[in-house]
Computed example of a mutant assay.
Amino acid sequence: MDWPLFIIFLAACGAAATTGAVFQPGDWYKRLDKPVWTPPDWLFPVAWTFLYLALAFAAARVATIPGAHYALAFWAMQIAFNTLWTPIFFGLRRLGPALVVLGGLWVAVVGLLWALWPLDALAFWITVPYLVWVSYAGALNASIWLRNRHAVPA
């Protein structure tokens, strides 16, 4: 693996992660009606740390492989949608549009996995938990939106 490439991809993940520090959940989020299967707040940074490391690792493993152009394009697409979600959900408090962004993220992650499979099995398998997490996040976002769609963001 090319370690400088890993650092570059990790920096992109760090930029996306910064939105979580800038747009924190706060009291508004705590007051929302959420399903009982909402994870505790401490789990989010733990999960995202693992996922961002895995994403950077997977991208660095395949970046120099001939034919990796679709994998890298889907990687760029997913990190863009990933970066957009937090400011829309927590910053603008727009639960419906955030769900649309999450749908785009889900499609990008599926595309990334599709492109990784023929290139590198380890990169593929280390990225699978990301699809699981994004699917779970989509269900959670949808549930919160449905439970609170008539509430005025405060």
Results as ranks from 00 to 15, higher is better:
residue 78 Q to N: 04
residue 108 A to Y: 05
residue 92 L to C: 00
residue 58 A to G: 08
residue 127 T to Q: 11
residue 151 A to F: 00
residue 74 F to W: 15
residue 15 A to W: 08
residue 99 L to R: 10
residue 61 R to P: 09
residue 133 W to Y: 14
residue 59 A to Q: 01
residue 153 P to V: 09
residue 84 L to R: 07
residue 123 A to T: 06
residue 128 V to L: 11
residue 50 F to E: 01
residue 104 G to Q: 13
residue 34 K to L: 09
residue 105 L to D: 07
residue 16 A to C: 08
residue 108 A to V: 04
residue 62 V to I: 10
residue 102 L to I: 13
residue 9 F to V: 07
residue 122 L to Q: 12
residue 73 A to V: 11
residue 132 V to A: 13
residue 100 V to D: 06
residue 152 V to C: 01
residue 40 P to A: 00
residue 117 W to Y: 15
residue 17 A to T: 07
residue 90 F to V: 10
residue 134 V to I: 15
residue 33 D to W: 00
residue 59 A to V: 06
residue 103 G to A: 07
residue 13 C to F: 01
residue 103 G to K: 07
residue 57 F to Q: 13
residue 40 P to M: 05
residue 82 N to P: 01
residue 150 H to E: 10
residue 103 G to W: 05
residue 33 D to N: 13
residue 80 A to N: 04
residue 127 T to A: 13
residue 143 S to D: 14
residue 69 H to C: 00
residue 22 V to T: 15
residue 139 A to Y: 11
residue 50 F to L: 14
residue 78 Q to L: 14
residue 86 T to D: 05
residue 20 G to H: 15
residue 63 A to S: 15
residue 151 A to I: 00
residue 31 R to L: 05
residue 74 F to K: 02
residue 129 P to A: 07
residue 94 R to C: 00
residue 18 T to C: 12
residue 135 S to L: 05
residue 28 W to H: 11
residue 27 D to P: 04
residue 19 T to R: 12
residue 137 A to E: 08
residue 73 A to L: 14
residue 42 W to Y: 12
residue 135 S to W: 01
residue 94 R to S: 08
residue 113 L to I: 00
residue 58 A to Q: 09
residue 46 V to T: 12
residue 68 A to L: 02
residue 125 W to F: 14
residue 142 A to G: 02
residue 32 L to I: 09
residue 154 A to K: 14
residue 44 F to H: 08
residue 56 A to V: 03
residue 118 P to K: 08
residue 3 W to M: 08
residue 95 L to G: 06
residue 56 A to E: 09
residue 78 Q to R: 12
residue 95 L to V: 03
residue 90 F to S: 11
residue 53 L to P: 10
residue 61 R to D: 02
residue 111 G to F: 03
residue 63 A to C: 13
residue 55 L to E: 12
residue 66 P to S: 08
residue 36 V to G: 15
residue 89 F to A: 14
residue 52 Y to Q: 01
residue 52 Y to W: 12
residue 97 P to I: 04
residue 95 L to F: 07
residue 76 A to I: 01
residue 136 Y to N: 10
residue 47 A to K: 04
residue 148 N to H: 07
residue 21 A to T: 09
residue 46 V to W: 00
residue 8 I to K: 12
residue 146 L to R: 14
residue 16 A to T: 08
residue 47 A to M: 11
residue 53 L to V: 14
residue 23 F to V: 04
residue 112 L to Y: 15
residue 137 A to N: 11
residue 60 A to C: 03
residue 107 V to Q: 03
residue 13 C to N: 12
residue 20 G to Q: 07
residue 92 L to Y: 15
residue 77 M to E: 04
residue 141 N to Q: 10
residue 48 W to C: 02
residue 69 H to F: 09
residue 39 P to Q: 11
residue 153 P to A: 04
residue 53 L to F: 15
residue 81 F to N: 02
residue 80 A to I: 15
residue 131 L to Q: 06
residue 88 I to D: 00
residue 122 L to E: 06
residue 60 A to T: 05
residue 118 P to Q: 06
residue 35 P to Y: 04
residue 61 R to H: 03
residue 5 L to R: 15
residue 62 V to S: 05
residue 91 G to Y: 06
residue 18 T to Q: 13
residue 10 L to D: 03
residue 84 L to Q: 05
residue 148 N to Y: 04
residue 63 A to R: 11
residue 115 A to G: 09
residue 99 L to D: 03
residue 88 I to T: 13
residue 77 M to G: 13
residue 112 L to V: 00
residue 120 D to T: 02
residue 138 G to F: 03
residue 22 V to D: 12
residue 93 R to H: 11
residue 113 L to G: 05
residue 142 A to F: 12
residue 143 S to C: 03
